[in-house]
Computed example of a mutant assay.
Amino acid sequence: MRIVVTGAFGFLGRRLAGTLLRTRTFGGAPITRLVLADRIVPPPDSAMAADPLVDVVHGEVFDRLGEVFAEPVDVLFHLAAAVSAECEADVDLGMRANVDTTRALLDAARAQSAGGGPSVRLVFASSLAVYGSHPAMPLPAVVSESTLPTPQSSYGTQKLVCEHLIADCTRHGFLDGRVARLMTVAVRPGKPNAAASGFLSGIIREPLAGRPTTCPVSPELRAALSSPRRAVAGLLRVAQAERGAGPGRLDGPLPVNLPALTVSVAQMLATLRQLAGDAVADLVTIEPDPVVEAIVGSWPAVFDNRRAAALGLEPDPDFASIVRDHLTDHTGTS
């Protein structure tokens, strides 16, 4: 079984690839090759890149399709993407990185199947940003997969376009498409990125590392969060679920909203204060940014998790557990 992960050296990509390398199986079958594709160069001491099971494809995925599909692809996790704030600032960048690249992957998967190769199981990392609240059409108090997506950002629009393309290709039998809508994943380690939601990690990660940071939204803002551990578990569960109706199965090419923990920024900061003390919590300063607040504030915060629960997926129990996971996994690396 040959598995491809795009965006493999990004934050979630590394965790997903690491999990696959630890198990070395997918759906009970042995993984024969794991292709890690990314424009990011892996560090010279990367144990993942040096693993004998791994092939590294370096460069923009759009330009490296020949290498990605040099041999038949059985499973493709498509995580590579331009993120929310940079897509809002540069629509053309978002269209190229998100829509054009996804369509190119779909075309390559379709060509493989049409040429007698295996049907690709394509797992797409979408986002809660496909939903958006507008005064003329506000979101319901609780959002589910049956809620009409009305994105209020370029990033959300691009993700929704890709969802529809994947569903249509699946309907035609070109591939086996699966869409997992990720919640805001926190706490992300490393340096801040260009995601509008990045502050939801920064207001925890930076103070824990002894660095001051700003929070660009009102403390009353609520967000739907998932720990990195739960996000990766969700991607793998959606990828490996059997098709069909009933608990534990995927019914058609319908998206799955991965489970969400709803928490306010004020609750996050209170948890930080409780776990790390006043000196750490006081490193966070509230400095509203209307652009960030408009994007993140348009996203839903409360989700009906029943579809995910039917697959055996549950949200994090509380925000304190998310912070403790971060401290366990990344102490000394933040």
Rank of each mutant, 00 (worst) to 15 (best):
2 R>C: 02
2 R>L: 01
13 G>N: 00
22 R>I: 03
24 R>D: 08
36 L>C: 00
36 L>N: 00
38 D>K: 05
39 R>S: 10
39 R>E: 13
40 I>A: 15
47 A>N: 10
49 A>C: 11
59 G>M: 04
60 E>H: 12
69 F>D: 00
75 V>H: 01
76 L>C: 11
80 A>Q: 05
81 A>W: 00
102 T>L: 10
102 T>M: 06
110 R>M: 03
115 G>F: 08
116 G>Y: 04
116 G>Q: 12
117 G>I: 00
117 G>P: 00
121 R>L: 02
128 L>T: 14
131 Y>R: 06
135 P>Y: 05
135 P>E: 10
142 V>D: 14
148 L>Q: 12
149 P>Y: 04
151 P>N: 08
152 Q>N: 14
154 S>E: 14
155 Y>T: 08
160 L>Y: 09
162 C>S: 15
172 H>L: 15
172 H>Q: 15
174 F>Q: 07
176 D>L: 05
178 R>A: 11
179 V>P: 05
182 L>F: 14
183 M>L: 15
186 A>K: 04
186 A>T: 11
191 K>T: 14
191 K>D: 11
194 A>G: 06
202 G>D: 15
208 L>I: 12
213 T>S: 11
220 E>I: 07
222 R>S: 14
224 A>P: 06
224 A>L: 09
226 S>K: 05
229 R>S: 13
232 V>T: 04
235 L>A: 01
243 R>S: 15
254 L>F: 13
257 N>W: 09
263 V>S: 06
274 Q>A: 15
275 L>A: 13
280 V>H: 01
286 I>W: 13
286 I>H: 12
289 D>E: 09
290 P>E: 12
294 A>F: 07
295 I>M: 12
300 P>K: 06
300 P>G: 01
301 A>K: 03
307 R>F: 12
312 G>W: 10
315 P>L: 04
316 D>M: 07
318 D>E: 14
320 A>I: 11
320 A>M: 10
322 I>E: 03
322 I>K: 03
323 V>S: 06
323 V>F: 05
324 R>P: 02
325 D>L: 13
